[in-house]
């Protein structure tokens, strides 16, 4: 498995080799690798909270951070693939809350948890497929298609659950692996991020995802199956969202219909991706960056709790972080254009 803590994106985006001063080169590296900047931010925040509080670097607290990380990091790993190929799925938060109920009813029907999980993820995948179909077949912008689908899924979840939480499986090997024990959630986060990082940087699927979002007409003309790529990413993102929902439900011990909070889930994932350097216009972004974005948000949230700062402030900081990240992205873009026009 790849070491996901490095900044290697497999040579997908190496800078122009002609070098200027050392400072210029470092500036260029930071410009070209938004993940490196966000990694520095994460480290700086970790150091700050370690010094400012006594308990930041303790096992229980790291477990708390890992718990904050599960949902946004896994949701973002799927969302970032969609963003890179030029789409977005706003219904992921609702799929996240719907899937545990599919698992619940599967288990009610006598299925063992792993099989019920498969059923749930299949159900999530169907939602992704419908989203993809509406977007690709009918040309409805995914922003709109998935916005509508989000409401549909929310209503569906409330209907099948009667609006009440259900008990999540609380014993057994499968439940232990699927989020119940200690760091099992974090383990899944790392697995998902590592696998998606490899998919994006080392496979044709990844290259074609970038090509589809970067210049869809050109990708089509080169024979890249852009419809298939987009469809696959819709299905993938929905399956990951469903999986994250089940992990989180098992961890907290109950499957919640999530009335009214689903949009928060999805926007947190988008925020993680954007803070990690993903452009919403398609063509650029990394799984690693999205993970680091989610990590920064988790560290901030945890650190604020430790310092007794209210959740209201966290929300303000989250908002400011998104805006700041976008400003930095657009400044970086301008700098790139300028550095380009200086050549030739």
């Amino acid at each position: 498995m790849n070491d996901i803590s490095t900044h290697d994106s497999g040579g997908l985006d190496k800078g122009p080799p002609e070098s200027r001063s050392a400072g210029g080169r470092i500036a260029e590296f930071l410009l070209r690798r938004p993940e490196s900047t966000i990694a520095l931010v994460a480290i700086a925040l970790a150091i700050y909270f370690t010094l400012a509080t006594d308990v930041f670097l303790t096992t229980p607290n790291i477990r708390v951070i890992s718990q904050y990380l599960i949902a946004p990091a896994i949701l973002a790993a799927g969302q970032v693939m969609l963003l890179i190929c030029g789409e977005i799925d706003l219904s992921l938060g609702n799929v996240y809350f719907m899937t545990p109920f599919l698992v619940f009813f599967g288990m009610e029907a006598g299925l063992p948890l792993p099989v019920a999980l498969m059923v749930g993820i299949l159900g999530a995948g169907v939602v992704g497929f419908i989203n993809g179909s509406i977007t690709i077949r009918f040309g409805v912008p995914s922003f709109i298609a998935t916005l509508g689908m989000g409401f549909v899924i929310n209503g569906l979840t409330l209907t099948i659950s009667d609006g009440f939480p259900k008990r999540a499986p609380s014993s057994g090997v499968a439940a232990n692996i699927l989020g119940l024990t200690g760091f099992s959630g974090l383990m899944w986060v790392l697995i998902v991020v590592a696998v998606m990082h490899i998919v994006l940087t080392q496979t044709r699927w990844g290259v074609h995802t970038i090509a589809t979002g970067g210049n869809r007409i050109a990708a089509n003309e080169a024979g890249v199956p852009t419809r298939k790529i987009r469809m696959r990413n819709f299905i993938l993102a929905a399956c990951l969202a469903g999986f994250a929902g089940v992990l989180e439900g098992i961890r907290v011990g109950s499957f919640d219909p999530g009335a009214g909070v689903a949009s928060g889930k999805v926007f947190e994932a988008v925020a993680a991706a954007v803070i990690g350097g993903t452009a919403l216009l398609g063509g650029s972004g990394t799984v690693l960056g999205a993970f680091l974005g989610a990590l920064v948000l988790a560290i901030l949230r945890d650190g604020f709790v430790l310092q007794g700062i209210s959740a209201f402030t966290y929300s303000m900081v989250l908002g400011a972080a998104i805006i700041l990240a976008m400003i930095l992205n657009s400044v970086a873009l301008k700098a790139r254009i300028r550095s380009q026009s200086f050549k030739t």
Binding site: G11, D13, N215, A218
Partner: peptide, 17 residues
């Protein structure tokens, strides 16, 4: 309209698809 992908390096464009 240039069937190249700006976000991909030259060698991946040369091998696109």
């Amino acid at each position: 309209d240039l069937a190249l992908i700006n976000q991909l390096p030259v060698y991946l464009n040369m091998n696109l698809n």
